[in-house]
Design a binder for these strands. Structure first.
Ligand SMILES: [Mn+2]
Ligand SMILES: [Mn+2]
Ligand SMILES: [Zn+2]
Ligand SMILES: [Zn+2]
Lengths: 143, 143
DNA sequence: TCTCTAAATGAAAACGATTATCATTTATAT
DNA sequence: ATATAAATGATAATCGTTTTCATTTAGAGA
């Protein structure tokens, strides 16, 4: 279940951030996309409708949204950042190498593995990164 | 079990790459390190003993070693690339957020989850990214 | 509704990391 | 020893991201 524009706006407010037109536009664009977006892609996308918005603001907005976990940062793709809309619960991602579509999944409990690692290595686990890449149904059929 | 300099050299040869002094030095430095190294760090490290080596060569060597899976690329750390020595078998990483030490672990079978995802999402899984961050024993004691 | 102020914006410049170019050197096969 | 394709390194170019700073503005309060 993906976050809605309304919820994201409310969360921003709750943390004392102002709800500017530029931020609304960025939130709208992320929410509308099924896939992952780089800051530059997002910029191109919103700049058509709203030429009065700078790339810097895109970066700043994404940083805030990321810190509040309202968007997810993806890592599996090569270099450079890319983002996708967040969800209320902890989850992970599958990313299509064909079209870039991002599918969330949850219900996978990683803590047994964490416990094993703590036992075997002495590490205190702080976080994890789990992503899959693959080909979505549509991309497989078109090939 | 980490790859040795000897094995890496042999693999390079096997794939038709020349074994230059610069490549030997890079391989030696990666093999000697317990942690992750960025290209720039690697450069600093080898430049002391071998001033006749360019940063460009570091990049090129790492790209080759990466493509042959002789080194591992890490993703959990913030921005920028970092590398660590490879192993013969498939494995994953735990990275200490304190000192940067990288510990390999294997024996974790991710395919049941892959099958579940294929069933539920229709994706054909191509690859995955699984990394943990945490604090190693030593860093915890020093804090 | 009007005023005020800290927060936000955007243009520009600065910055760091990575890649491309190209003349020179060199590892390796013959 | 020679030949040659591959590799190197200095430099410049490029790309993504951050900083700076003068200007604008959202939202709180009167
Ligand atoms: Mn997500
Ligand atoms: Mn490894
Ligand atoms: Zn697809
Ligand atoms: Zn440590």
């Amino acid at each position: 279940m993906r976050l809605t524009e309304k919820r994201i706006a409310a969360a921003l407010r709750q943390h004392g951030y102002k709800l500017t037109p530029q931020r609304r536009v960025v939130i709208g664009a992320i929410t509308a996309s099924r896939g992952q977006l780089t800051p530059a892609e997002l910029y191109r996308k919103v700049h058509q409708e709203h030429p009065n918005i700078g790339l810097t603001t895109i970066y700043r907005t994404l940083e805030i949204l990321g810190s509040l976990e309202l968007v997810c940062e993806l890592h599996a793709g090569g270099s450079g950042r890319s983002y996708t809309i967040g969800t209320p619960e902890h989850h992970h991602h599958i990313i299509c190498s064909g079209c870039g579509e991002v599918v969330d999944f949850s219900g996978y409990d990683i803590s047994p593995l964490e416990e094993r690692l703590t036992r075997e290595t002495g590490f205190e686990i702080e976080g994890h990164l789990l992503e899959f890449t693959g080909r979505c149904q549509r991309c497989r059929q078109n090939a």
